[in-house]
Amino acid sequence: MMTLLKLNSKSPRSPWHLVDPSPWPFTTSVSLLCVVLGLTSWMNGRDWTIIIYGALLLGISVTSWFRDIVIEATFQGMHTKPVQNGLKLGFKLFLLSELMLFFSFFWAFMHSALSPSVEIGCCWPPAGLTTLSPWQDAAVNTCILLTSGASVTWSHKAVKAGIYRDSFIGLLQTIGWGCLFTYCQYQEYKVCPFTIADSVYGSCFFMLTGLHGLHVIGGSGFLVASLFRMGRRHFSTGHHLGYVFSIWYWHFVDIMWLFVWGIIYIWGSWV
Rank of each mutant, 00 (worst) to 15 (best):
W270I: 14
T63W: 07
K81V: 15
K81L: 15
M1R: 07
S115M: 09
L101K: 06
L33I: 14
F235C: 06
F252W: 15
L180A: 14
T195Y: 06
T63Q: 06
Q185N: 11
R13E: 13
L99Q: 04
D47V: 00
R229T: 07
I51M: 13
F205G: 01
N44V: 01
M1S: 09
R67F: 09
R229D: 06
T63E: 03
L214I: 10
V36Q: 06
S115T: 10
P15S: 09
I71W: 12
P193M: 04
I247H: 13
P134C: 05
C123D: 11
S14N: 10
S22K: 03
Q84K: 13
T3Q: 11
L7E: 15
L241H: 08
P193L: 03
G86T: 02
L4A: 12
V260A: 02
S97C: 13
V152A: 02
S226V: 12
M78V: 02
F235A: 06
E98F: 05
P116M: 02
A55P: 00
P21L: 09
L58D: 04
L208T: 06
Y243N: 02
M43L: 12
C204G: 01
G45L: 03
S9T: 10
W107Q: 10
K6C: 04
C143S: 13
G202A: 04
P25K: 00
P193I: 01
C192E: 03
W177T: 07
S11M: 15
L32A: 14
M207I: 07
P125H: 00
I217H: 08
F75I: 13
G170S: 04
W261M: 04
V271Q: 12
P15C: 08
F222Y: 09
E72C: 14
W267S: 01
P82G: 08
L56H: 08
S220T: 15
I175T: 05
R67Y: 11
R67M: 10
N44K: 05
F252N: 10
H156V: 09
F66W: 12
S31Y: 03
L96K: 08
Y265V: 02
A139L: 15
H239N: 14
S29R: 05
